[in-house]
């Protein structure tokens, strides 16, 4: 437990120190890598609430990642074309303001998670995995075949969106924003896990019948967890789109869902900092193995296989020992 805290602190410091060093050494590419780690970790933190706390194996989290991305893409593209989003019955303009985009991304993905949750939480086990996968494919094909916002080609945004008081085009300032949001989400996750809600959710994962028998509605617990989880992943999607200044249906693809899950698993399921460790490892592997060989996915696959078969606690589990903090 104490060791896990030390590892967590070291991870957070490293994620902060590397880009600061890169900023001093004038290496903007390294800052961008760190920004990607922070954003993907944020998406993972979202999934970890459903997967780690709630035991909900969702293979459809790309939905929320994509909705966040498209929330940013649609709002910003209307703003850059000076074409209002809606004229009647009331005028809605596009916007380049990050806080507004974030709010829209969070609300839209939370709503989507609520609806999808109501429908798919009726099932469990493999059926839940499959129905979330199917919803993901539904969104993917819709994004591909809907021509209004780029269809298969996606949408490009020419200039990064604005945040009051900051210059978001400066890599280190954009990183700071993403890092702050990640820290906020981690704090929320830690508070949730200790709150009565998180304890009940964990209990429902371990023994549903007992939780039901003391009068707690486990369906409602899971629905709330799934909604919060979707909202956080949606926020990460908006940031990811802003980082690339590009959105495409690939954000909705099931490979994206698989990758978000890989961050969580590589790092350690249910560990608070699992997604951070996993995303950092993923980006490091992508960067270094991708530089060595075009076929780096083979090594990623072997590593993932090794973790699943032999090191079930993931990176943090291996370093910090077996017991999980809030179980």
């Amino acid at each position: 437990m104490r060791r896990e805290r030390l590892i967590n602190a070291a991870l957070l410091l490293a994620l902060l120190a590397v880009p600061l060093w890169a900023w001093a050494a004038d290496e903007p590419f390294t800052i961008t890598l760190a920004t990607r780690v922070a954003i993907l970790a944020l998406a993972g933190v979202g999934l970890n609430i459903a997967l780690g706390l709630g035991g909900l194996v969702s293979l459809g989290h790309a939905i929320f990642f994509g909705i966040g991305g498209y929330a940013m893409g649609i709002l910003a593209s209307h703003a850059q074309d000076h074409a209002p989003l809606l004229e009647s019955p009331l005028l809605i303009e596009g916007t380049k303001s990050m806080p507004v985009i974030w709010l829209v991304a969070v609300i839209a993905s939370a709503l989507a998670a609520l609806v999808i949750g109501v429908l798919s939480l009726r099932t469990s086990g493999v059926y839940f995995i499959m129905i979330t996968l199917a919803f993901g494919q539904m969104f993917f094909f819709f994004a591909v075949s809907w021509p209004a916002y780029g269809g298969e080609d996606g949408l490009s945004i020419y200039v990064r969106n604005e945040f009051p008081g900051l210059n978001t085009l400066d890599p280190i300032q954009f990183f700071a924003l993403c890092f702050a949001l990640l820290a906020g989400a981690l704090l929320l996750n830690a508070r949730l896990a200790r709150a009565p809600f998180g304890l009940a959710l964990s209990a429902a994962r371990q023994n549903e019948a007992r939780v039901q028998s003391v009068g707690i509605d486990s369906f409602r617990l899971r629905l709330v967890a799934f909604t919060i989880s979707g909202a956080i992943t949606g926020l990460a999607g908006a940031l990811f789109a802003d980082l690339n200044r590009f959105v495409s249906p690939a954000m909705f693809s099931w490979q994206t869902s698989g990758e978000i899950m890989i961050f969580v698993i590589l790092g350690g399921v249910g560990r608070l900092f699992g997604p951070v460790a996993g995303a950092a490892l993923f980006i490091l592997l992508e960067h270094f193995l991708g530089g060595l060989s075009e076929y780096w996915h083979v090594f990623l696959g072997l590593l993932l296989l090794g973790v699943v078969l032999f090191a079930r606690g993931g990176l943090i589990g291996t370093l910090a020992g077996r017991e999980v903090a809030h179980d």
């Binding site: 997967l51 194996v57 293979l59 086990g125 493999v126 995995i129 698989g258 899950m261 890989i262 698993i265 399921v269 076929y295 780096w296 996915h297 083979v298 990623l300 696959g301 072997l302 590593l303 993932l304 296989l305 699943v308 078969l309 079930r312």
Partner: peptide, 28 residues
Amino acid sequence: RRLYRRDHLDQVLATFALILIFSEGTRW
């Protein structure tokens, strides 16, 4: 063989890893 007694999450992940290995291996 090692996955039969594991939960579905482990099965999904391990076989997802196999997809990565097979796809890139075939591309190779």
